[in-house]
Each structure stands twice: as structure tokens, then as C-alpha cells.
Design a protein around this nucleic acid. Structure first.
Length: 715
DNA sequence: AGAACTATGTTTTTT
DNA sequence: ACATAGTTCT
């Protein structure tokens, strides 16, 4: 193996980390200081020392990050075999539990549930306990889930959490406890594990089973952890246990980039590291290799006012004297226009499109911008917000895969049965109760006697389940058969926006073909849900501008970064309370701004539209107000000549949803064109937003004008 | 009683 | 675009 690792242009601090012998190391590294690079070289160094790849464990924040790092380490060592184990805590827990879970008496068959599933269970319990009829005052499933999950990954009691964060809910504490008990029992009964269970059971593996602990600890001799500030107490404990034989742990983190406390992350883990691992070497990386000095000066100003005292002050040697730009927009539409206009100018300066990103606090803050970009033919990719696997039709399809992996997965059975016409929640539960008694629920389904009205649909279901319940089938083969069954149902349920959803199903088809076994397909789609990339604007292979929530932008960088929606009430988030939450929002802005390499644009609207369509005037985010004025320049588009303010003329047929009135736009007998169904004739107008259209080849459909995107051919 | 339909409300961030 | 509550249909 080659060792040109030594001539790699690392700075002395990075070099010290990479070449560290054995024993614990804490690397405190600022934004853009080459954290990832350091870890990659560290892996290469270990391999160069003759350490077996199998004995290295790399834990990162996303699976993608791990794959990227492993690939780069492989490049450095000319070893592409990639036998280093690397991934997220949760994915690693999944693998280890499937291998060693029997030491805890865990069944081999368990399936992993995401947050949506968990909330679904909470809801079932809520109604079975008679809590949902109690009026709106009873807290929503999401809030309940926060307390249950929080009590695990923050290592606190539900009572404490309620008292601290929402004292007005304390009257419900008993109900929360009861719901939690039922929730835990439900998961046990149906072989389900949520994200918290994965970590807790990994921890149990290391504390309750000496055999498992020995096997795992002997297996991994070197532990590397990225983004350590985002670990929670359980994860820190797991690291401590994993390394109990050898203390060969390197953790890398940045306390000023901790933005995940809402799910239990505790950046004090960094401060505690030296107590947990006495004698740990501490290395600080302060040089920034990403951003120009003017950008750093602004980001340093953002973080300077933090209540916690952070240790680092970043400096950069990168040339560049362009100060960040601040733009104050009249409203959200003007903000979107400004961003689009500026992107165009940048593109004319030959800045590649894939070096531009727009970041925001919450998924819906970009809606206006998405519309503006679509009508200007700028293609974009949105990250954060809804995941592909969170939409109903995708879940419908995945449910078939999940019952194959775990036939006791009640949730998935429920989904599948509810697709049948004339079968509702009650009937579904009856069927599930019946098949649950059997050793092989999938084949027991055929023995259930269906009701008269839904006998036919049920027969088809039994047939398809029998067909796919064969271990020798590949995931792709299962997918094809499932679609054969599901498509007619699908078309009926989602007649409104059939084409768009259909495209998403095709994405799943592409995804499933990459898997050899169903188990790993199901696990991966839950642990690492694919983004729902909006492909409607732009073709495949075309570079797209990234629109992303700040959380999803973590660890990435672009030449040009816009941070939008920096208005009071939007950033920090409306419900953020003074104290730790307020400080976390500040760090969030810090993370956003430090993604920029050359150009940073900060924008905010002075008027927001509330949920009730009221226009509310607002000012700039308090964090911006704290920044000395000399650190940015103000751009004033409104003072430019009028012709520059115009965005391009609207295309004749655009996909943005304009409010149309069926009665004024369409008439019975008119000819219309639908992007998927083709040419059709209006049969009747059913309401202000709904028309019934007879299509030449697809029969008669009822279309909702908000979604259907109809084009008038002849009225 | 249970399914299906309609109107209304709402939206932090995510492994 | 979803979830929920309230209403109507079978």
C-alpha cells in the first residue's frame, strides 16, 4: 500500500491528528477546516500502517458522507475494496443487531419504523384509549412523540420534559405515560423498532451481553466519529463502550455547529470527552480553507454574540475581498425575484449552476422561490422537507415489501387492506386480528372470509400476496408484480395528480433494482429515505441549483450561497424561546453562512403572509441586527431601472398553480388538453375548482383545477 | 355501524 | 399536500 499520505499538504494540526498513534483524540474543528479531509487521511494512514480495514469503524452523520469518505480513502491507498465499515449510528446499529441481536433474545425478524409510522401508532393508541375525541385540547401525536422520544434520547423523564418545555400540558402527563406503555407494547407485539430502539438496543448489546460485547469490541479496533457535536448521550456512551479495550477513538466535532439538540444531540459531549477518555489528546483546527476573509468576518460576528463561549476564532488565507450582500425585499415575491435575477447574473459571469445554493430555515419558506424559478425555467433540486418515502402512494407500495420481511408488521397490513374499496379501519383490524394468530400470516390471509361487497378486491389481494411471497423472487420482480396489482387502485385513489405521483413510483422502480434482497431494500429506505427530487423542472443529468433547508446543507459547500427568509419571526423560528433554543438558531445561521466559499447573499422580506392570509409587516432577523454594518453591503434592486426588475415574461402554459375558476374558464363541451390524459371534452362543471372531462383514451375523470394543469384548446 | 365524502386547518429542523 | 373533524351515505 502506498504511503504518499505524508506529502499531502496537510497543516501541522491536521498532520498531528492523522499520524496520531493509539489512544483517544478529540479534534475540535471549525467550519471549513478540513475535518472530513483529516478523517479520510486518518483512515488512509491506518491502512498504510497495516491495520486491517475490517477493524476500522467510521461513524458519520449521513450515509452519503460515509460512502464519500470511504471512497476517498480508497483512492489514497489504491485499495478500492472498501472493507471499512462505515455509516450512521442507526445503520450500524441495524447491522450489528441483525448479527448479534440473538444475544439479547431479539427475534431475527424486525422491521424499522420511521417517525411517520411511529406517529401512526400513537394515533391508533390515542383513539383506542378514547383520547382523540376529547376535543382539540389534547396534544397532537407529534407532540406526544416528542416527549416519548425525548425521554429516551435526552435521558430524562417525560415529566421533566413536560414541565420544562410545556408546563401547560402537565395535566396530560399520565396519559403520556400510558400512551408510551402501549406504544412500547405495540412495537414488541409486531416486531417493530424505531430509531431510538436501534440505539438503545445497541447500547444494551454492549452492556447486557458480555459475549456480544466481546465480539464487537474485538472486531473494531479503531473508531472514528465525525460530527461529534450531534451525538446524544446514548451515542456517546456507545462510543465509550465500543472502545473499552483499547481507547482508540478519534472524534471530530465543532461545538458551534451543533444544530440537532431537538433530537437529543448534546454538544457538551465534546466537553465531556476528556473525562470519558482520560489522557485524550486535544487538537484544534482553526484555519478555514473554505471561505474568503470577508465572509468569515461576518460569520464570526454571528457566533461572537453566542452565550456559550466557544474556543475558536477562524481565519482564512483565501483571497477575495467581496463582502456579503444584504437585500431587503418588500415581500416574499420580491425576495424570490431578487434571487432569481441574481442567479441569472451570476450564470452570465460563468459561475457554474451546481456551485449555487439557496438555504432557508424551514421547508415551506422556499415555496415562492420554487414558483419563481419554475416560471423562469431555472431547474432546481430541493433538499429537506418531504422525503420520497413519506408520501402516501410510496408508502402503499413499500408496505408490500415490508410484510414480506416481517409478516407481523401490523402497520403495513393496515395500509394494504385500507386500499380495498369498502374496507375501512374496523374491517382492516378484524382481518389483521385473524391472520395474526397464524404462524404464516401471509398465507393465512386466504382463509379469511370476506364480506359480499368487497369479495372481489380481496380475492385479487390474496392472489398477489401469494404470488410475491416467494423468497426466490428478486426485489425488482416483486415490484413489478405489486405494481400490476396496485396501479388500478392507485389510479382511482389519486386521479387528481396521477402523473406526478406516477413519476415518483418510477423513481422507486429505479431504486429497487439496485438491491439483491428485500430486507436491505426495506431497511435502507427507512434508515436513509431518498429525497423527493422535483424533476419537473430540468432534465436528467442537467446541473441544478440546490434549494435546501439549512439542516440538510450541513457539511456541504458552494461558491455562492443565498440565505433567504432572514426575517424576524422566521429566523429564529417563531416558537424559539430565549435561552438554549435561541442560541441553537444562532448556530443554525452560522452553519448556513459558513457554507459559502466566495459569495454570500443574505435576504429577507419585510412582509409575510400568515396562515390566515393576513399580511404581517416584519423586520430583519435579530441576528442580522447584531452584525456591524461594515461587514456587508446593501443591494437595492428597487432603485435599479424598472426593466431590470422584471422577471422574464410568463410562458404560455406554466405549471405553477394559478387559481382558476372552472365556471369562467371552461364550458361544457369545451376541448381541453391534460399533460397525461391527453385531449378530452368537458362533460360538466362540478364546482368552482372541479370539472368532469371525458378523455379520448382514458375515460371520464374528475379533475381538480389546482392540480390538473389543464390547457384550453377550444372553448 | 362503518365507509366514504367534504370542509377546514396547519407547517421547524431529521438520523 | 396532508391530517382531522364533521357529515352523509349505505
Amino acid at each position: 500500500m502506498n504511503t504518499n499520505v505524508h506529502n499531502s499538504g496537510l497543516n501541522p494540526a491536521q498532520h498531528a491528528a492523522v499520524n496520531h498513534g493509539s489512544g483517544p483524540v478529540l479534534v475540535i474543528a471549525g467550519a471549513g477546516s478540513g475535518k472530513t479531509r483529516t478523517l479520510v487521511y486518518r483512515m488512509a494512514h491506518l491502512l498504510g500502517q497495516g491495520i486491517a480495514p475490517e477493524s476500522i469503524l467510521l461513524l458519520t452523520f449521513t450515509r452519503k458522507a460515509a460512502q464519500e469518505m470511504l471512497w476517498r480513502a480508497g483512492q489514497l491507498t489504491d485499495d478500492s475494496s472498501n472493507r471499512i465499515m462505515g455509516g450512521t449510528f442507526h445503520a450500524t446499529a441495524n447491522i450489528l443487531l441483525r448479527q448479534y441481536g440473538h444475544f439479547l433474545g431479539l427475534g431475527a425478524r424486525f422491521s424499522i419504523i420511521d417517525r411517520g409510522d411511529a406517529e401512526g401508532i400513537i394515533n391508533l393508541i390515542k383513539s383506542s384509549l378514547g383520547l382523540s375525541g376529547a376535543g382539540k385540547r389534547f396534544p397532537s401525536k407529534r407532540i406526544i412523540m416528542n416527549f416519548i422520544s425525548g425521554s429516551i434520547n435526552k435521558s430524562r423523564t417525560i415529566d421533566d420534559l413536560v414541565y420544562e418545555s410545556s408546563p401547560h400540558l402537565s395535566e396530560f402527563v399520565e396519559d403520556f405515560h400510558s400512551i408510551r406503555q402501549h406504544y412500547d407494547q405495540f412495537k414488541l407485539d409486531h416486531g417493530l423498532m424505531d430509531y431510538d430502539d436501534l440505539l438503545v438496543n445497541w447500547q444494551r448489546l454492549l452492556t447486557e451481553s458480555p459475549e456480544a460485547k466481546e465480539m464487537i469490541c474485538n472486531r473494531f479496533q479503531y473508531i472514528l466519529v465525525d460530527e461529534y457535536q450531534d451525538t446524544n448521550l446514548i451515542q456517546a456512551h456507545i462510543i465509550r463502550l465500543l472502545a473499552s479495550n483499547h481507547d482508540n477513538v478519534m472524534v471530530v466535532g465543532d461545538d458551534s455547529q451543533s444544530i440537532y439538540s431537538f433530537r437529543g444531540a448534546d454538544f457538551y459531549n465534546i466537553m465531556r470527552f476528556e473525562q470519558q477518555f482520560p489522557g485524550a489528546e486535544v487538537i484544534t483546527l482553526e484555519e478555514n480553507y473554505r471561505s474568503t476573509q470577508p465572509i468569515l468576518e461576518l460569520t464570526n460576528a454571528v457566533i461572537r454574540n453566542a452565550e456559550e463561549k466557544f474556543t475558536k476564532s477562524l481565519f482564512s488565507n483565501i483571497e477575495g475581498d467581496i463582502r456579503p450582500t444584504l437585500y431587503t425585499a418588500k415581500n416574499e415575491a420580491a425576495e424570490a425575484r431578487y434571487i432569481v435575477k441574481t442567479i441569472r447574473e451570476l450564470r452570465n459571469q460563468d459561475i457554474p449552476v451546481n456551485e449555487i445554493a439557496v438555504l432557508f430555515r424551514s421547508g415551506f419558506h422556499s415555496y415562492k422561490l420554487e414558483m419563481e424559478m419554475t416560471s423562469n425555467y431555472l431547474s432546481f433540486e430541493k433538499r429537506g422537507g418531504m422525503k420520497l418515502t413519506e408520501s402516501a402512494h410510496i408508502k402503499d407500495v413499500l408496505a408490500f415489501f415490508r410484510i414480506l420481511v416481517n409478516p407481523w408488521d401490523n402497520l403495513s397490513w393496515n395500509r394494504i387492506l385500507l386500499q380495498l374499496d369498502k374496507v375501512g379501519p374496523k374491517t382492516a383490524q378484524k382481518i389483521i386480528a385473524f391472520i395474526k394468530e397464524s404462524d404464516t400470516p401471509t398465507s393465512a390471509l386466504a382463509n379469511f372470509t370476506p364480506g359480499k361487497t368487497w369479495k372481489e378486491g380481496f380475492g385479487k389481494l390474496v392472489q398477489i400476496i401469494t404470488e410475491i411471497d416467494k423468497p426466490e423472487l428478486t426485489p425488482s420482480a416483486v415490484y413489478d408484480k405489486v405494481m400490476e396489482y396496485y396501479l388500478p387502485i392507485f389510479e382511482k385513489i389519486y386521479y387528481d395528480d396521477y402523473p406526478k405521483r406516477r413519476k415518483e413510483l418510477d423513481q422507486i422502480s429505479a431504486l429497487v433494482s439496485g438491491y439483491g434482497d428485500i430486507q436491505s431494500f426495506v431497511d435502507d429506505t427507512t434508515l436513509d429515505p431518498p429525497e423527493n427530487t422535483d424533476v419537473q423542472a430540468g432534465q436528467d443529468g442537467e446541473d441544478r441549483i440546490i434549494l435546501s433547508t439549512i439542516h440538510s446543507a450541513k457539511g456541504l459547500e458552494w461558491d455562492v450561497v443565498f440565505v433567504m427568509g432572514l426575517a424576524e419571526g422566521r429566523f429564529p423560528h417563531q416558537n424559539a424561546t430565549p435561552g438554549p433554543q435561541w442560541e441553537e438558531e444562532r448556530r443554525l445561521l452560522y452553519v448556513a453562512a459558513t457554507r459559502a466559499k466566495k459569495h454570500l447573499y443574505l435576504t429577507y422580506p419585510t412582509e409575510l403572509v400568515a396562515a390566515d392570509r393576513q399580511h404581517i409587516r416584519t423586520g430583519m432577523s435579530p441576528y442580522l441586527r447584531e452584525i456591524p454594518q461594515g461587514l456587508y453591503v446593501k443591494d437595492e434592486i428597487d432603485k435599479r431601472p424598472a426593466y431590470m426588475q422584471q422577471s422574464s415574461p410568463e410562458p404560455a402554459f406554466q405549471s405553477t398553480r394559478k387559481k382558476q375558476s372552472a365556471r369562467t374558464t371552461y364550458a361544457t363541451g369545451g376541448v381541453v388538453k391534460h399533460p397525461y390524459f391527453g385531449i378530452g371534452r368537458v362533460v360538466s362543471i362540478l364546482g368552482p375548482q372541479r370539472v368532469e372531462v371525458a378523455f379520448d383514451r382514458h375515460g371520464t375523470k374528475i379533475l381538480h383545477l389546482d392540480y390538473a394543469n389543464l390547457e384550453t384548446i377550444e372553448s
